[in-house]
Amino acid sequence: MQLRVFSLPRSEHPVDQVVAKFWSSELHLLAGLDADTAKKIMQTQACWGELRPYGADRVWAAIQRRSTAEPDDESEDDDDLRKPEWLAFTAGTSTELPDFTTRPEPVPHQHRRWLRSVVLVPGYGRSPRCTASPGSTPPSGTCSTPPTGGGHR
């Protein structure tokens, strides 16, 4: 599977992020309906495939949160990829998105004197050995050179 873009956390709960993704195209229309009607209609929308794992009740709650939330600060730079990433790394909570995950881990005992926190980021793709050569893109989950050490073949 090859992804054209990747997701960065823009909200505390993954369902809120998916609702935000489809808010202006489909979901904003459901906010003014009663819960039973909205839950039936949402399951007929094109975006339901991405929303289904959360269930109609959780999606409806996210729609309600979104409809009553304060408008986003327009001055914030939407092109700044580092800020939401940094916020996810430093939040102290887990982030579970299809292609971006963070998980707080215990600080090893021997490092507690100087290290405050550890965040596991599975599959994070900035390792120099996992970068593509110029002009090419390796398939997802592959490295341009194999990892070294460990004695595994």
Score class of each variant (00 low, 15 high):
1 M>G: 14
2 Q>F: 03
2 Q>P: 02
3 L>M: 15
3 L>G: 08
4 R>W: 14
5 V>N: 12
5 V>L: 12
6 F>M: 11
7 S>T: 08
8 L>N: 03
8 L>G: 05
10 R>E: 06
11 S>D: 08
11 S>G: 12
11 S>H: 15
12 E>F: 12
12 E>V: 15
13 H>Q: 15
14 P>A: 15
15 V>Q: 13
15 V>K: 14
15 V>S: 11
19 V>I: 06
22 F>V: 00
22 F>H: 13
23 W>A: 12
23 W>E: 00
24 S>F: 10
25 S>F: 11
26 E>V: 00
29 L>C: 03
30 L>S: 07
30 L>N: 03
33 L>Y: 08
35 A>M: 05
35 A>S: 11
35 A>R: 10
35 A>P: 13
37 T>H: 08
37 T>G: 02
38 A>Q: 00
39 K>E: 08
42 M>T: 05
42 M>G: 02
42 M>W: 02
44 T>V: 02
45 Q>F: 05
46 A>D: 06
46 A>C: 03
47 C>L: 03
49 G>F: 06
50 E>H: 05
52 R>A: 14
55 G>Q: 11
56 A>N: 01
57 D>N: 14
59 V>R: 01
60 W>P: 02
63 I>A: 04
65 R>I: 05
70 E>R: 12
71 P>A: 14
72 D>H: 10
73 D>R: 14
75 S>M: 09
76 E>H: 10
80 D>L: 11
83 K>T: 15
84 P>S: 06
84 P>Q: 05
87 L>C: 04
88 A>L: 13
89 F>C: 09
90 T>F: 13
91 A>L: 09
92 G>K: 01
92 G>V: 13
93 T>G: 07
98 P>F: 01
99 D>I: 09
101 T>K: 15
103 R>C: 12
103 R>P: 04
103 R>F: 04
108 P>M: 09
110 Q>Y: 11
112 R>M: 09
112 R>V: 00
113 R>N: 09
114 W>Y: 09
121 V>W: 01
124 Y>G: 07
124 Y>V: 10
127 S>I: 10
128 P>C: 07
131 T>H: 02
133 S>M: 07
133 S>D: 11
133 S>E: 10
135 G>C: 03
137 T>H: 05
138 P>D: 08
139 P>G: 06
141 G>T: 11
144 S>I: 07
149 G>M: 08
150 G>M: 15
151 G>Y: 00
151 G>D: 07
152 H>K: 15
153 R>V: 12
